[in-house]
Amino acid sequence: MISPSTYAARHLQALLGALGRLLREPLATGLTIGVIALALALPAGLWVIVSNARAATGDLADSIDVTVYLKADVSLEKARQLQRNADRRPDVAEVRLVPAEKALEEFREYSGFGEALEALRANPLPHVLSITPRAEAADPARIETLKRHFAAWPEVELVQVDTEWVQRLGAILELLRRALALVGGVLALGVLAIVGNTIRLEINSRRSEIEVTKLVGGTNAFVRRPFLYEGLLYGLLGGLLALAIVVAASAALAAPVSQLASLYGSGFSLSGLGLREAAVLLGGGAALGWLGAWIAAARNLSRIEPRA
């Protein structure tokens, strides 16, 4: 029966041996790790882009406003009453009344048509109710119900909901998310292939050692162990380098993104990979490396038997 300390020593030995072999050929090892890192950094970088795009547009999707234009002859008093009526609905969070005078003022200020408006004898703008639905009522179907409800009021001229672009944005993000899953899957297979091939070459170059080990009674598990550690190290180091690449890219893009956001009057700032995502990247890399090595070992080790 094998003692735990002997068992641990064996594994430590296999790990150190694998590390030593990686260090003995730094150029080849570096290239392999670099390729693995690129394959891992690409989906990780995409993930950062998609998750940031979601964060940046998430507020927009939540703030769908239903804009209700009242008929021009509706008085301000009537408009206030309609505001109260609308506010009573359970699926409405807030109703804001923009009186015609206020709207004209704002228009004059921001549009740059101030002087042209001076030429008008009367205010062409109607009173407007800006209605914010409750968050739980913000799905397209219930917005549509709300829209139809207000459109039926006799005092209402027009109801406008700007949901289409929000839906389109959502669809684009969903597409990106799926593309990310697809790209991630393909590149994960790529990592398996890279590690698998590297380990296959390693197995071939250590053929005589494997033969002798089996000759003196080494089990398949014993023979396989150093190769599994090697694959694990390749994956882990590749994940580490990928993490560095993504962190560096995020840092390089943070300033321009903040600048862009401030131009849109937003306080949005780029968030890179969190601890959890970093752990997923490292763990995923290590797991892929281990699996790639395992596949290569399963396919190649059993063919190597001692010969006299």
Binding site: I2, S3, S5, T6, Y7, R10, S208, E209, E211, V212, T213, L215, V216, G217, G218, T219, F222
Partner: peptide, 22 residues
């Protein structure tokens, strides 16, 4: 059939190593 890149100790120890000897 010795492993020429390993010292004598490693070569001789191999049958014990694979048998998980302390």
């Amino acid at each position: 059939k010795l492993l020429m890149d390993r010292p004598v100790f490693d070569n001789v120890a191999l049958p014990l190593v694979v048998a998980d000897t302390p």
